[in-house]
Computed example of a mutant assay.
Amino acid sequence: RIAGEITMAENPGVVIRKWRDIFNVSQKDLSRKLEVSPSVISDYESGRRKSPGSRFVAKLVTCMLDIDDSRGGAIIKEYSKLMEGSKFFEAILAIKEFNEPRKIKDIIRATESEFLVGEKNLDNAVYGYTVVDSIKAILELSPLELSMIYGTTTQRALIFTQVKRGRSPILAIKLTSLRPSIAILHGLEGTPDPLAVELAKRERMPLALSHVEAVETLIEKLRELD
């Protein structure tokens, strides 16, 4: 399934990076396992090198699984149930746990966001982020799968892309009964939905609006935090 997503992706390098982040494997460790230069992985992820062939992708996925297995298999065990017949990973554009905690103000700065709710929480800790395709998440994921977007901790930034007004992502958060450190809306069409803002206030959940134009740029800016 992972290999298929990479091979069929419009931008395979972005998907390779997403899965490498999920498995928490560095370019150096992955390249060592693949017996290639770290620059090869970097070139694929940045788009400098053309799309990898199916054999290379299969080997790359096997290496990530082997590395995870050597660490006890925590990642594959955590996600194995979701992978069978699930749209979970199609809805997740990027997911990362920080090596060192950041603050909400760091996330706000990186995502070029403005607060809609909770501007007094600038110094609250954030331990990771998840960038979510809001349309796929809301249409395809079950409540259990929605709860999995929090990764290893709820003290993270949830960034929802392809947002029209913002109501659906906030309702989805409310459905899980879990609260992120901050929710950020990206790609908003028009003004934020007043109900979304009111719900965020009632849940005492910081809510912000990102002004970064492209999703790819947004993800790159977040990656620069770690």
Rank of each mutant, 00 (worst) to 15 (best):
P101S: 12
N121K: 03
V117R: 04
L122G: 07
D123E: 03
K105G: 02
I108V: 15
E119A: 14
S134T: 11
L122T: 07
Y129T: 06
E114V: 15
I108F: 09
A125Y: 06
K103P: 01
T130G: 04
R102C: 08
I107A: 11
I108S: 08
P143V: 12
F98K: 00
S142R: 05
D133T: 13
N124K: 02
E100W: 03
S113M: 07
V131R: 05
K120R: 12
A110Y: 02
G128W: 09
P101G: 09
T130M: 03
S113A: 15
D133G: 13
R102T: 03
A125V: 06
A110F: 07
A137M: 15
P143L: 05
V117H: 07
T111Y: 03
A110C: 01
L122W: 04
K103I: 08
E114W: 07
A137H: 08
E140F: 14
E140W: 12
N124S: 05
N121L: 02
K120D: 10
V126M: 11
E112I: 01
E100D: 06
Y129I: 07
K105Y: 02
G128L: 07
N99G: 00
A110D: 06
S142Q: 02
A137L: 15
D106H: 15
I135P: 01
D106I: 11
Y127I: 05
D106Y: 12
S113Y: 04
E114L: 14
E100G: 01
E112F: 01
N99V: 00
V117D: 05
